[in-house]
């Protein structure tokens, strides 16, 4: 029983990180129907900037804030420098552009900081908390808390603010949105920036647990994409739920002795879910968007 609980806690932590990255995917997808393959690397950029700021002698909270803002700036730059100039190139060319952007981000980071591993201190110490025989690292709580906060804020943002609604309108029908006086370009820019910000939040939150290095975005980005699709692309709650399902499944597999095939089983699960629910768990049904 303790074991099961431990697996759930570990899985939820890992899953929250996947969920945070998945949220970044969803934001960008909602605004431009593009899968941003640089999402994982935006996460990496956030972690690396935070480490650099800390190494420069500034306190940890400052490093965390600067790191997350750095991710947002990288997201803005990605849109301004590569997505906007491409205009209405269509989704696949835009996906290739994000793939190129991922390589550029990785290349720049390697030129500045090399390919080594870097760590960030845990936000509130390393002393593990024992609870009902279950071990929880304080940083896990930070990860969970940040994910929850992000979901709450995003939900509020999209349901109750004008800008949030404008973004939703842009995603549903860009032409109509433009007619309504919404600056759709600005909305897309905002989403790329927000996506970068969310990625960076994940990046700084996980750096104390799993470290950061130039290639860290590759695997985490892939897992985030899986989580986003699993939840139903375009759905925020779905992204987080997708991430949690993925994280808990993986951990359970490892815990009950099938770590060799844990990723394979996760992918199999996704195949089965997609076959029975072709639009993911919480994907919008009905009219197909062409």
């Amino acid at each position: 029983m303790t074991e099961l609980l431990q697996y759930v806690i570990t899985g939820v932590t890992v899953g929250s990180i996947y969920g945070l990255i998945a949220l970044g995917f969803v934001l960008v997808y909602n605004s431009s129907h593009v899968i941003n393959f640089a999402q994982g690397d935006l996460q990496m950029v956030g972690g690396m900037i935070a480490v650099a700021v800390l190494t420069a002698g500034l306190p940890l909270p400052v490093a965390v804030v600067v790191g997350t803002l750095g991710g947002a700036v990288a997201g803005f730059l990605l849109y301004k420098a590569a997505i906007e100039p491409a205009g209405d190139a269509g989704p696949l060319p835009l996906v290739v552009i994000t793939l190129g952007a991922a390589l550029v981000l990785r290349g720049v980071v390697e030129l500045i900081w090399g390919r080594g591993y870097y760590s960030l201190p845990a936000f509130s110490g390393d002393e593990a908390i024992q609870f009902l025989g279950v071990t929880i690292v304080p940083q896990s709580l930070w990860v969970l808390g940040l994910t929850a906060a992000v979901v709450v804020v995003l939900t509020y943002f999209f349901n109750s603010t004008k800008t949030g609604k404008a973004i939703l309108a842009t995603s549903i029908d860009p032409d109509a949105a433009t007619l309504m006086g919404i600056n759709t370009r600005r909305m897309k820019l905002l989403c790329f920036g927000l996506g970068g910000f969310l990625g960076a939040v994940a990046g700084v939150a996980i750096a104390p647990i799993a470290f950061t290095y130039s290639m860290v975005g590759l695997m985490l980005g892939l897992k985030g994409f899986v989580a986003a699709v699993l939840g139903g692309l375009g759905n925020f709650k779905g992204a987080v739920i997708g991430g949690l399902i993925l994280g808990v499944t993986e951990t359970m597999m490892s815990g009950y002795g099938a770590s060799d095939y844990k990723d394979a089983i996760a992918f199999l699960l996704i195949l089965v879910i997609l076959i029975f629910m072709p639009r993911g768990l919480l994907g919008a049904s009905g009219v197909e968007r062409v």
Binding site: E3, Q6, Y7, T10, G11, T13, V14, I17, T135, I206, I209, A210, L218, M219, L220, E250, T251, M252, S254, G255, G257, S259, D260, K262, D263
Partner: peptide, 20 residues
């Protein structure tokens, strides 16, 4: 005899099994 995959960010599950 436990294993984990490249890119995994937490091995608590495997270590919990070992601990028990």
């Amino acid at each position: 005899d436990e294993t984990y995959a490249a890119g995994d960010t937490d091995m608590s599950a495997q270590l919990t099994r070992i601990r028990s």
